[in-house]
Design a protein around this nucleic acid. Structure first.
Lengths: 315, 315
DNA sequence: AAGTGTAGATGAATTCATTTCATCTACACT
DNA sequence: AGTGTAGATGAAATGAATTCATCTACACTT
């Protein structure tokens, strides 16, 4: 005996159980009530016991019917939903873009007005997360990943790379731009974002100190002195803008602030960052839209961003 | 267009996706690989896009296929499981009995050796819970409910009723059995179990006090004096046995202790309790086993329980 | 009590979805 | 170049699903 009966039987049963009526189930499925009666009879034979109590009216589910109904109903409903998603997969005029929190907030979202000008009918849903979303799940159409090397779960291309600079607010270090020695830096609160513990090449104070040791004979243990560590790179940047300390920041993320003077570099020693990679699946039903986005963001990354307005009050 | 394609197509797709092979899917389903090819072609037409990448080998799921596969796989698996449950519904040599915690622990479980003597091949799973399990869910085959009136979700019959007595350990009130006035009772810690706040007729000290006021002119506010309240009736009983105070307890649950002298009644004022009701569905596939259990427990309730051994050390 | 209407049951006949058969294609391997 | 394999395709065959015709068991009305 097959482990599953013909699924036609389950569909008939589910409709009849939902309506508590063979006649209404027949109407819904576009067959005669006789077809429903036959299908349910077959399913009851398969189960070895009745699924409905026919008399007295109205119909009622038996114990077996009660066990079966919610499972079949939920299963068929999940089929409908996913089939609808798949059918509409190429139709919806929206793309779901995932990017790291900081990149989404500081680089991508500020440029969305330009995107809208270029593509008014193609909406973007931006999902900021530092977690890696596997494109196979369908949770995102395009991913912008910050990584050491190109990702492997789709077509990947490098959008840009960044460089980490030591920066501070003029309110902290003075209006005139001047470079500070490591010993001078050590006098300020040092700000950095957290990186995965396994990332030994992270552009943080520890790595900067190693780089500084090449030029300076006596470099303080800046890593131990770092006193303001943020889970979100975004928050580290905000703290630096607010004048809370000296920070190591990605030039991609603080380009507007560097341009406006809200942040100034205070050391010529910089650290190469990683790459921003675009990833998508080339069998995606929205490939045309995805390629339009790829083209746009590639162009956008070649255009300097406007200087940031210097905020007069930071919350 | 129907909201669901023929489910034969989904079954073919799921098997092919699971095996990553039309040939192996065909073997599993007992058809030719051509049948699988046709079925999947039809499903792809329904979805408006391919579900498999055929070349290069091996087969791979497309984006649409990746969306569809886990949902269909899980749905079909849940169908298999519930159909198996329903098919085996009457075959399994076990009954699942649910009862209140106290009744299960103090009345039913102690009698299971007698049950095993009478029905060695019919295993019982006892589920102690003070929550009401709706028999429709199939989580229990028989319910023993403690309630004011017979339940309505199945065939119900009253097993027995109980009476609440004021009792204490001889270690607390002395070896000779004597009755205490309300004022004398108030000198001891008073123990009771919690009842639902909405149950205004609960057999607790508040209700006992109202009953006592009929015979005694000045009855202390025993409800306010009650200082040991337990979520579990079982624990209230254990505290009384341990000599921690005077308690109001169901005679059904402490029959062995009353018989052995581990607990003694210290007032002639008693409170009628509620009823213990047996409930089951008469369309249950295990009806024969259920009726055997009903017959046994009805007989067992007419037989006095052996006195409890007086424990020399209570933890 | 008789007549009427309704929902589900049943078996035979019909319809149509599923499957097989025969042949082809596109590789990978020798 | 020859061989083997897995999937593709269209026509034909098979069998599951459905309809048709009739029946049954009520509930309701007269």
């Amino acid at each position: 005996m097959r482990d599953l009966p013909p699924l036609t039987e389950l569909r008939a049963f589910e409709a009849a159980a939902r309506h508590m009526s063979f006649k209404l189930a027949a109407a819904e499925l576009g067959v005669t009530p006789t077809a429903i009666s036959h299908q349910i009879k077959l399913l009851e034979r398969h189960c070895g016991q009745p699924l409905f109590r026919r008399r007295p009216r109205p119909l009622a589910l038996t114990w077996a019917g009660e066990q079966l109904f919610p499972v079949v109903r939920d299963g068929l409903e999940s089929f409908r939903e996913v089939l609808s998603t798949v059918r509409d997969g190429g139709a919806s005029g929206r793309l779901r873009i995932t990017a790291t929190n900081a990149f989404a907030a500081l680089w991508l979202v500020p440029r969305l007005p330009k995107w809208r000008e270029a593509h008014p009918s193609l909406k973007l849903d931006i999902v900021g997360t530092d977690a890696i979303i596997d494109l196979k799940t369908g949770e995102a159409d395009v991913a912008i990943r910050y990584a050491v090397k190109p990702p492997a779960d789709g077509v990947g291309s490098e959008l840009m790379r960044d460089t980490f600079h030591v920066v501070a607010s003029p309110s902290l270090v003075g209006a005139e731009e001047r470079l500070l020695s490591p010993a001078e830096l050590a006098r300020f609160p040092l700000i950095e974002a957290e990186w995965p513990p396994t990332d030994t090449h992270a552009p943080n104070w520890r790595r900067w100190q190693r780089a500084a040791s090449v030029q300076y004979r006596a470099v303080p243990d800046l890593s131990a002195l770092a006193s303001l560590t943020f889970r979100e790179e975004l928050h580290a940047i905000e703290a630096a803008i607010a004048g809370h300390g000296v920070a190591i920041c990605s030039d991609v993320l603080i380009a507007p602030e560097l341009a406006s003077g809200a942040l100034v570099t205070v050391s010529q020693i910089t650290l190469p960052g990683y790459g921003f990679y675009l990833v998508y699946r080339d069998d995606h039903p929205k490939l045309v839209s995805i390629k339009a986005f790829i083209a746009w963001i590639t162009l956008a990354s070649a255009v300097p961003q406007a200087p940031a307005e210097i905020p007069t009050n930071t919350g």
